[in-house]
Simulated assay, not measured.
Amino acid sequence: MNPVRKTFLLSQALWAKYTVRLAPEAPGERHGIVSPSSFVPEASARPLRLVAIGDSLVAGSGVEHQDLALTPRIARKIADMVNRPVQWETHAKLGSTMRRVRYRFLPEVKGHVDILFICAGSNDVMARRSREDWLDDLRAVIEQARTRADHTIVCSAGQPHHSPKLPAMLRRELAHRIDWQTAASQRICREYGVDFVDVAHAELVSDFWASDGFHPSASGYEQASGLVVQAMSFLPEMTATIR
């Protein structure tokens, strides 16, 4: 990278680090159970178990309560699609990288899991972790996930490259890094036969951003949850076969 450009980027990154005030993790219980809107009791035997692990998008930063966050919204949509209750839980922390997912959150997941949702990447990009480290961690996470869950779906980074709080040059550099990370993640997920959802390149709803200009609002999480569920290729199979 051009030394002058590198200096500008580093200065903008430092400015953002000490200027942008990130929304905290949403308060509230990080587990729950939801029933489908048109619940037919005799159609179900047990709730499906959805476990989400990852960064602030899973922790619900940007909304006032966990009920408004990403994972329970995903659970509600799955419940309506398969007409079964969904029991959900999250293991997440603001600022988490894929390495934290690998060594902290995955080991916390115990027992049978129907759907494991993995969401991390933005912090790896912003921390300028090497591509080699990212690939190593993602592969290890997917390999472990497949031993813990019947179905796994991996989510891309969010959209820090579109954050209205960040300087333009920094946004462009983040976009370049996220483009690479997204393509690499898609390729690895295909290799392992797990689903991947690209939220990093989705056209955002007009009120996507929370008050911190960095995390999703309630509307943003609603949009993201729809993208995640649409990418779950296994849901029709689950509807037909799980009893």
Rank of each mutant, 00 (worst) to 15 (best):
E203L: 12
A168L: 07
G111M: 09
I178C: 02
W180P: 01
S122K: 04
E203T: 14
K93N: 09
F117Q: 13
F196Q: 11
D137R: 10
E108Y: 06
L166P: 01
D212L: 02
S217P: 04
S122C: 06
D195K: 10
L135M: 14
I178S: 02
D195I: 11
F196I: 12
R148M: 15
H151Q: 12
A145T: 09
H161E: 00
I115G: 05
G158M: 07
F196T: 13
Q159M: 03
A184P: 02
E191L: 11
D133M: 13
P164A: 00
S211G: 03
H176K: 07
C119N: 13
P107W: 09
P107L: 08
H215Q: 04
A140I: 11
D114C: 02
T152L: 13
C189M: 10
R100E: 14
R131H: 07
R146G: 11
G158C: 05
G158D: 03
E191V: 10
Y192G: 12
H176F: 04
C119Y: 11
F196A: 10
A120F: 04
D207N: 11
I188T: 12
Q159I: 00
L94K: 15
V113W: 06
I178P: 01
D133T: 14
E132Q: 11
W180L: 01
H215C: 04
S206P: 11
I188N: 07
E173F: 03
G193L: 11
A184S: 03
A120R: 04
R100T: 13
E89H: 11
H176N: 09
R128N: 14
V141K: 07
A120C: 05
S206D: 15
G121L: 06
Q186G: 12
S217A: 05
K165I: 01
F208K: 03
S217H: 03
M98S: 13
G95Q: 06
H162F: 05
I153A: 10
T90N: 14
L166Q: 01
Y192P: 12
R190E: 13
R102L: 13
C155Y: 05
A168P: 03
M98G: 11
S122R: 04
C189R: 09
Q186S: 12
Q144H: 08
S122A: 13
S206H: 14
A175F: 00
C119A: 15
K93W: 10
W134S: 07
W180N: 01
Q159T: 01
G121K: 03
P167R: 02
P164R: 00
Q181A: 04
S217F: 02
H161C: 00
S163R: 00
D124C: 09
F208Q: 02
R100M: 14
S163E: 01
S163C: 01
E143Q: 14
V109W: 08
P160C: 04
S211M: 06
I153E: 11
V205S: 14
K93T: 09
D195F: 09
C155A: 13
A127T: 12
R128F: 15
R172D: 00
F117K: 09
A200S: 15
L166K: 00
S185P: 09
H161T: 00
S163D: 01
L166H: 00
P160I: 02
R146F: 12
R100Q: 14
G158P: 05
W180R: 01
T182C: 06
W134F: 15
S185D: 06
H91R: 15
I118Y: 05
G95M: 08
S217Y: 02
E203D: 15
S156C: 06
H161N: 00
S211F: 06
A157Q: 04
Q144N: 12
I142R: 08
T97V: 08
